[in-house]
Nucleic acid binder design. Sequence first.
DNA 1: TTGTAGGCGTTATCAG
DNA 2: CTGATAACGCCTACAA
Lengths: 346, 346
Amino acid sequence: MTTDDHNGAALQHNQGGRATATIYDIARLAGVNPSTVSRALNKPGRVSTQTRKLVEAAAVELNYQVNPMARALHTGRTSTLGLIVADITNPTFFNVIRGAESTAVSRHYTLILAESSESAATELTAARRMMPTVDGLILASPRMGDDDIRTLAREKPVVVINSEVEGVSCVTPDVGKGISQALRSLAANGHKKVAFIAGPPQSWMSARRWEGVKAACEWSGIESLRFESTEPTVEGGRLLARDIRASGATAVMAYNDLLAIGLMQELQAAGISVPDRLSIVGFDDIFGADFTTPPLTTIRSPLRECGALAAARMLDLLTGVHDPGEALRAETELILRGSSGRLLVG
Amino acid sequence: MTTDDHNGAALQHNQGGRATATIYDIARLAGVNPSTVSRALNKPGRVSTQTRKLVEAAAVELNYQVNPMARALHTGRTSTLGLIVADITNPTFFNVIRGAESTAVSRHYTLILAESSESAATELTAARRMMPTVDGLILASPRMGDDDIRTLAREKPVVVINSEVEGVSCVTPDVGKGISQALRSLAANGHKKVAFIAGPPQSWMSARRWEGVKAACEWSGIESLRFESTEPTVEGGRLLARDIRASGATAVMAYNDLLAIGLMQELQAAGISVPDRLSIVGFDDIFGADFTTPPLTTIRSPLRECGALAAARMLDLLTGVHDPGEALRAETELILRGSSGRLLVG
DNA sequence: TTGTAGGCGTTATCAG
DNA sequence: CTGATAACGCCTACAA
């Protein structure tokens, strides 16, 4: 049968050698009181150099690790940040996660991750589940209503990415610069009719992008059209190729790169040359946006920076700054690649 | 005692209305003992239907949420899984994260995430930091030594992805099928000399892939060469273009898709046509592998499945199964796209 | 079926 | 500067 037979369910893990040491063990070994151990470890300075060294030695000797739960139970602080993203599948969020994770760990915080699957209800459930365990919550592209967000924010610090909610700290890419660069470029290449593909209806960012595009078009005397996507994915982009083509637009700006890439693939499969017949511009500059042929022109959102900014803002909120402050804006910029350009006439 | 007398700077969050309710509050409201509340909520059946309903009503009334820390402190179980990936930057891990996260939440577990930045030391630190907070640890492409992994596994359940460690539960893609399919395809297209680009030296997966490629080459009478990469990224792939070209190989199999894509980009920039002059095959089938022109032929690893399998295995370990068992193998398969094919002679 | 009492590992308060 | 002691919120023998 099996080679090593443990007796029943008793010894498996955690008892391999000794259970994890507590400050009591250290206290005994160092010959001091547990409370002194706690002080020595956490607020050196409130204790004599001598006993501090004694305690520290005992701690390493016993391979001591604080028990975060026990600490949290008493202090209410968990040194943990929660991050909820709309869709783990969507590469847009990878950089947000990276940014948040790296600044969190750099400040000795831990990140816990959940997703809302693009659903407001799921998102709220996930948030509620996280609440007791985290010191603060970062919501990337929230789908829940502003009131729900404010309710959460009343309990613990909340920072929102890609959306702006009155009374809550926010970090958003400022679409203005990138969009105007893009439209200048399209106008310079003779485009007169631009289609915008919208993202999810609850998406704050999609609304801002459409506003920006529409305004910039008006300003440049370009006609603008709006299309709705079924889902903000490659597949969603594919589905729109036919309609876009029929619309007579010579350039398309898609809510995100995924839509842009799907659209481009479908058009190319139908023999429509990009950018000779149609220029395509995405948003975000996700990983892989430059893998396509032609590489995708896109308006880059500094997502990693947004994640990092959000985590940093959170850390501020957790250390005394209690003003939600103004929304932090991160600049966007046009990344001009091959998928946009001059129309080939004739 | 008044319920709400906050003093000065005290009130910011968490006091906005009421502090989070405890079982004591429920007990008071329902007119029973706290311990009865605990039982009613956790082991319905050990309590009369009447009081159970009473308690449940009070719980929703107060919007009660258990405090996971307090529970964990007593029970030792945290309902949290830790996941450490080698590099958050690397899209390979996105699917692993997705898989693990979704099966974790489906079983009411929470996922906490950390990365090792491809460093054994960082990884061990992250693991140690997580240990007290999690019920189990999933290591995706671990860089630390097997002994360190076993030491961790002695404390709490550990599941390893993309590596096999004696005595520890493992989930690995089985490279055999995918590699033999790839080599059959290359052989059928007349290739006689195949170069393999290796990944990080500590990577178990890289070693297996090289073994598999070498063996399959011998079996098919194809000459095999091995190159070392500086880093398993697009940039790392670019750097090897010159050497690969000089080697006389007509096909390349790269440790991962990133290397393959970088190599392809650099070759194309130098005017070398893929696959007419050189066939390229990657590993993993990451997001974006089909965005390239030609789209990348690659040996798909079911990474999402691996993440899910690992989490599922972990949950088993946490509910009574204490045998590490055999390594779980997930099949790989060749995804034949445009970057590999027949050599254009002349 | 329900109540009582103790403890999980820390930190904070209060004496000494 | 250090020691005793009481929480934090929950769970679980044990007693009623």
